[in-house]
């Protein structure tokens, strides 16, 4: 029997309060009517209204979303292929190097990855901007997709593929009609994880950006360095809301399809 002792409940509650309080405060203050961010001046959506006119901020948001969409999609393809190679191919030449390259970005400090990629872009002399960030982000987040898809593939019952072939289905078609639909939830979680990571990244984007490609984190960072601003509170609240809606709909979708396991696995991947 499990008994939730007071110590357990207490530590859990304190932990959750610690996690949520700063975010809740941020959200509340984004509705503050006062320009002075520390003085409560009543409820208002004034800062949201001002955001609509902030062309630069909207521009950044649009660039960031496009980069995140592009690199998450590319990383899902690359990460899935890498996971397939790692799980299904057994030993092959260069496996150690391959798995090293896959896992290293998981723990590599972003300053190093960013610096290395920038030096590459300089060495091959391409114009920095949208595409260099997209390439850098794809490289950075592929490993996360690999980890999520790999854990799904490891528990995948390969007799299902054998059954399909036994019933007359050739290998490629088997992959498309049996394997892919069954690992799809992992691909979706992997994509979502990759998308939020790209949305989130400041350091690598700062290194690899160029004129005309100021992502939202870069813009927020440069504003935050100058101090707290109510507009930034509003931007952050919108981002939090978007993520919350995304997570909620994904987990509802997963619950609807597979009893909630896919979303849980995805969340755990973070």
């Amino acid at each position: 029997m499990r008994r939730a002792s007071w110590f357990n409940i207490g530590s859990l509650a304190l932990g959750l309060a610690f996690l949520y309080l700063p975010i809740v405060i941020l959200v509340i203050y984004s509705f503050n009517a006062s320009r002075l961010v520390t003085v409560w001046g009543g409820w208002s959506i004034r800062w949201y209204a001002e955001l609509i006119d902030d062309r630069a901020m909207l521009e950044s948001a649009w660039v960031t979303l496009r980069i995140a969409f592009l690199s998450a999609s590319a990383a899902t393809v690359l990460g899935t292929l890498a996971a397939l190679a790692l799980v299904r191919f057994g030993r092959f030449r260069g496996r150690v190097l391959f798995s090293g390259m896959i896992y290293a970005p998981l723990v590599m400090p972003e300053v190093i990855t960013g610096l290395a990629l920038l030096l590459l872009f300089v060495a091959i002399d391409i114009d920095r901007g949208f595409w260099t960030i997209a390439i850098a982000h794809t490289t950075l987040i592929t490993c996360f997709v690999t980890v999520v898809v790999q854990s799904r593939l490891l528990t995948f019952d390969t007799t299902l593929e054998e059954a399909a072939m036994n019933l007359g289905c050739p290998p490629v078609k088997t992959f498309l009609t049996v394997t892919l639909p069954l690992i799809a939830p992992a691909l979706v979680s992997g994509w979502m994880l990759a998308f939020t990571l790209s949305l989130d990244d400041l350091v690598v984007a700062s290194f690899t950006t160029g004129p005309g490609a100021t992502t939202l984190p870069i813009r927020i960072y440069s504003e935050v360095r100058l101090g707290v601003k109510p507009e930034i509170n509003a931007v952050c609240t919108i981002l939090i809301a978007l993520v919350a809606i995304g997570i909620a709909s994904a987990s509802l979708l997963a619950k609807f399809h597979h009893g909630g396991r896919g979303a849980m696995a995805g969340l755990a991947g973070r």
Binding site: P22, I23, I25, L26, T196, L199, D200, L202, P217, I220, Y221, V224, V228, I232, C236, L239, I240, V243, G246, I247, L267, R270
Partner: peptide, 10 residues
């Protein structure tokens, strides 16, 4: 799942 930057900013 919310931005790293936002959490520090908070």
């Amino acid at each position: 799942w919310t931005s790293f930057l936002i959490r520090i900013y908070a």
